[in-house]
């Protein structure tokens, strides 16, 4: 791993720290003369979520990312609050998916990639050499753009995570499968055919199955990479409702192309452009009153 060891890795963030944003992408920083972009953000956050405090769940500091010699992320620093939905928006190729995949180290699988900077989950560096990637990914689950059911039965798909984790108790597995499917709002549709192939489900059902499968591993954070982009409007609406439900118990980060979707489901939004985190803030504020010219151009549809 190419993580730069820093003192920060052991410097746990105070869990009660009130969520606060200090985003300084290099370009905006230069433009703004290091002036903090957002002010009074905690109150906005408070209004949006109706809760008093939002501890930071994931914090990234000065993250750069490279595919070979090709740098795709530039100095991204971002805080993601717990038990809320954070959306990453931006035109395709802007690095938002790459950034998302850094949060549970999915990029490790790809040869020839490296990064600098830190990704802290509850204050500890996920790229630290002592971190067990398997454990990390159990805690930070991921749902992909294309639904990826395993060519097994519905039951075996959901039970996969607990089973590989060593759970053998049949009753316990049944219970997990049922609760996961219920949470993913799929139970009523499939409860009578748990042993039929997951490949036979519709696209929307498959995606909810993948969400249920992730829930079954009991994660804290769920990363979603354009989870609804391949779905029809009705299925999309169901997935969005589900996301809205899930945020009560999970920290959710969602990458989306669809700005309306971001506006509908998320409390906070981060706008990426050409590998740079341009702006982040309360979703409503960002969409109604963006600070940056690029953000405004994007959300008003002038490019992208």
């Amino acid at each position: 791993m190419n993580s730069t060891p820093t003192v920060l890795t052991t410097n746990a963030i105070d869990q009660s720290e009130v969520f606060r944003v200090d985003v300084t992408g290099p370009r905006s920083a230069a433009a703004q003369g290091q002036k903090p972009i957002t002010t009074a953000r905690p109150t906005v956050a408070k209004q949006a979520t109706g809760e008093v405090t939002h501890p930071v769940k994931i914090r990234t500091k000065n993250v750069d990312f490279f595919y070979g010699d090709n740098q795709v992320l530039f100095d991204v620093s971002l805080d993601i609050p717990e038990k809320s939905v954070t959306a990453f928006i931006g035109p395709s190729g802007c690095g938002k998916s790459t950034f998302l995949r850094m949060l549970n180290r999915m990029n490790d699988i790809i040869d020839g990639t490296r990064h600098t900077g830190d990704v802290l989950l509850e204050g500890s560096d996920v790229y630290d050499s002592s971190v067990d990637v398997v454990l990390l990914r159990k805690r930070v689950g991921m749902v992909f753009q294309k639904s990826t059911p395993f060519p097994k039965s519905i039951f075996d798909n959901i039970a996969y995570g607990p089973k590989v984790a060593g759970l053998r108790n049949k009753a316990k597995l049944n219970e997990i499968v049922e609760t996961s499917l219920k949470r993913a709002a799929l139970w009523d549709e499939v409860k009578d055919r748990l042993n039929s192939s997951a490949m036979a489900l519709s696209g929307g059902q498959q995606q909810r199955l993948c969400i249920a499968r992730t829930l079954a591993t009991d994660p804290d954070v769920i990363l979603m990479d354009e989870p609804a982009s391949a779905l029809d409007p009705a299925s999309t609406a169901r997935v969005e409702d589900l996301i809205f439900e899930l945020k009560k118990n999970y920290t959710i980060v969602i990458v989306t192309h669809n700005m309306q979707q971001a506006a509908r489901v998320s409390q906070r939004t981060a706008f990426f452009f050409q590998g740079v985190l341009v702006e982040t803030g309360d979703t409503r504020a960002l969409f109604t009153n963006p600070t940056e010219k690029q953000t405004e151009d994007y959300i008003t549809g002038r490019f992208g």
């Binding site: 067990d132 398997v134 159990k138």
Partner: peptide, 12 residues
Amino acid sequence: IEYAAILKRRHR
């Protein structure tokens, strides 16, 4: 704790 213990075995 149990998960961590099993995880060790899984890695082995």
